[in-house]
């Protein structure tokens, strides 16, 4: 294929990947709706007779007809796998079309970032069955793809400031960290919701499908711990080295640098909070969400709202 054909293929792959991801998101939403309905049915049935026999009958029914929500959950995952495949194909062909790494501008950054996040999510689904964060991950992925599309530029070479292998390392580390922060933030959000429901003594049908809050706390901690290491490396080591070569100083309090620093500090705060009595659990989860907000702002907000040196901002 020629470079132009690669570029065209990439656009088609990304567009269809976005569509399929939207379908996956809808499947997960429908799944949640059915979870609510299904929760209502057995509840009314058990009012009539709570004997062992009737429960057994209900169980047999379940074996024959899989609940719709479970089917939809699997459909959601399958669609996510297809979408991820398409997006990864889009990323690879984009790289081939521009003969460089596919993260040189906001469009590519968002596209590659979402692809990595989805791969990380699917691997975790495989390992620890975390499909319950599916609606959040696909929803967020769609939002970020939307932002990426709004900054679309055709495939092309890099501006001179981005010609550096430190850029490759810097952005790759930061994107993978972001993917982990996304999974961690989803777990922390569900943690907060479920914890509140438990404290009120009423856990709805959707939240009761989510694992125990201890499990979510652990998942959040692990993804954040790995993400924090990568963020430290990407934003605080590779970034300054690149900045040194590009701008003649390794740290200059450019808005993007300030926000990378703020993000780092907030996540360090999260790790501390988890080890501090009184801040464990709820407090830590809130800090984790604040950390994700600062991450999103340093990734996207800074480029939109604040002028700075990071030249792919425009």
């Amino acid at each position: 294929m020629t470079l132009a054909e690669y570029a065209e293929f990439s656009n088609y792959a990304v567009a269809s990947g976005t569509l399929v991801l939207a379908l996956a998101f809808l499947a997960h939403l429908a799944e949640l709706l059915f979870v609510r309905q299904e929760a209502v049915v057995p509840a009314t049935a058990s009012v009539g007779g709570a004997s062992q026999g009737s429960v057994a009958v209900a169980d047999e029914d379940d074996d024959e007809v899989e609940p719709r929500s479970a089917v939809l959950s699997r459909v959601g995952i399958a669609l996510t796998i297809v979408a991820t495949g398409l997006l990864v194909a889009g990323v690879v062909t984009r790289a081939l079309a521009s003969t460089r790494v596919p993260w040189g501008n906001m469009y590519e950054f968002g596209l590659t970032g979402v692809s990595i996040a989805l791969v990380v999510y699917l691997v975790l689904v495989r390992i620890t069955a975390i499909q319950w964060i599916g609606p959040l991950v696909t929803g967020f992925g769609l939002a970020i793809l939307g932002l990426a599309w709004s900054a679309y530029v055709p495939a092309g070479p890099l501006v001179p400031a981005l010609h550096s292998y430190w850029l490759v390392i810097h952005v790759a580390a930061v994107m993978i960290a972001g993917a982990l922060f996304l999974v961690g933030a989803s777990a922390s959000l569900l943690y907060l919701l479920k914890e509140r429901a438990e404290n009120k003594g009423h856990v709805g049908p959707i939240l009761s499908r989510v694992p125990t809050i201890a499990t979510m706390d652990r998942l959040a901690y692990r993804t954040h711990a790995v993400g924090f290491v990568l963020w430290t490396f990407g934003a605080l080591i590779a970034g300054p080295i690149w900045a040194h070569y590009a701008w003649g100083r390794y740290w200059g309090w450019d808005p993007k640098e300030v926000w990378a620093f703020i993000t780092w500090v907030v996540y360090a705060g999260y790790l501390h909070a988890r080890a501090t009595a009184g801040w464990k659990g709820r407090g830590a989860a809130i800090i984790a969400l604040a950390g994700f907000a600062t991450f999103l702002f340093s990734y996207y907000g800074v480029n939109i709202f604040v002028p700075g040196l990071h030249s792919y901002a425009k």
Binding site: W253, P255, V258, W259, F261, I262, V265, V266, A268, G269, H272, A273, A275, T276, G278, W279, I287, T294, V302, F305, V306
Partner: peptide
Amino acid sequence: SMRTALLLLLLLAVASLPGSF
């Protein structure tokens, strides 16, 4: 104490905010 360190850490994040705007 770690609690103070935590607060100082978050305070540092807040204090560096205005410089980005």
